[in-house]
């Protein structure tokens, strides 16, 4: 474990807690894309298949349980909770996430470390995580006023993967044969997708104006 990875995991944890806080306390999911939340639940479900078979560390297992539990409970809140679901913007959140899942699955069948179910699922989860934010970014473009919690949620979600890139660089230089192209390329693509959001988020913070993305 290195400081970059710990920072990444804590930032990722904070993004999930910010979202749960928003949904649980003010009972609103305005501006949040259910599609992205469902994609994240699928990412964790396919990545943590080995949660009960390969024990890495207590930390690893606890964090996996937190990410699985929070992502599925957020989807449940947005689908089932009578108050929260009322604030869900169904008309605007129309990104057909099936068109993200299928290419990632096909790519995982071709590009994987080993053609086994677990390895293909693991590669699929990495490709899917890279693009899972797209429905959320599209929704942000459409909904003019982005409230602070939603902006912070997306920012933290992007920042966590950026920390992971520093973690991979660090591990590449400190651990022999630490080379994982699938993880690196997916993580880089994922972070680049946030680039324009970061640009507008930083500017809105610098000029102390409300965050809004150009149409």
């Amino acid at each position: 474990m290195n400081i970059f990875r710990l920072a990444g995991d804590m930032t990722h944890l904070m993004s999930v807690l910010v979202l749960l806080l928003k949904i649980h306390t003010i009972k609103s999911c305005a501006g949040i894309s259910l599609k992205t939340q469902e994609l994240y639940a699928l990412v964790f479900a396919t990545r943590y298949l080995d949660i009960f078979t390969d024990f890495i560390s207590v930390y690893n297992t606890i964090m996996k349980l937190i990410f699985l539990g929070s992502s599925f409970s957020i989807v449940w809140y947005m689908r089932r909770h009578k108050l929260v679901r009322r604030s869900y913007d169904k008309e605007q959140d129309t990104f057909r996430h099936f068109f993200l899942v299928l290419p990632c699955l096909l790519l995982a069948l071709v590009m994987n470390e080993k053609f086994t179910f677990k390895e293909v699922m693991w590669a699929f989860s990495l490709y899917l995580e890279a693009v899972a934010i797209l429905p959320q970014l599209v929704l942000l473009q459409r909904t003019k006023n982005i409230d602070n919690l939603t902006g912070q949620y997306v920012f933290l979600l992007g920042a966590y993967r950026a920390f992971y890139i520093f973690n991979w660089i660090y591990r590449y230089f400190t651990e022999p044969h630490y080379v994982h192209w699938i993880t690196w390329i997916s993580g880089l693509v994922q972070t680049l997708l946030y680039a324009d959001f970061f640009y507008y988020y930083f500017n809105s913070w610098k000029n102390n104006v409300k965050l809004h993305l150009p149409a």
Binding site: H12, R47, I56, N60, E113, W122, H180
Partner: peptide
Amino acid sequence: EECIHVKDEL
């Protein structure tokens, strides 16, 4: 032999 790397990251 082809080493499958341990998935120790989240």
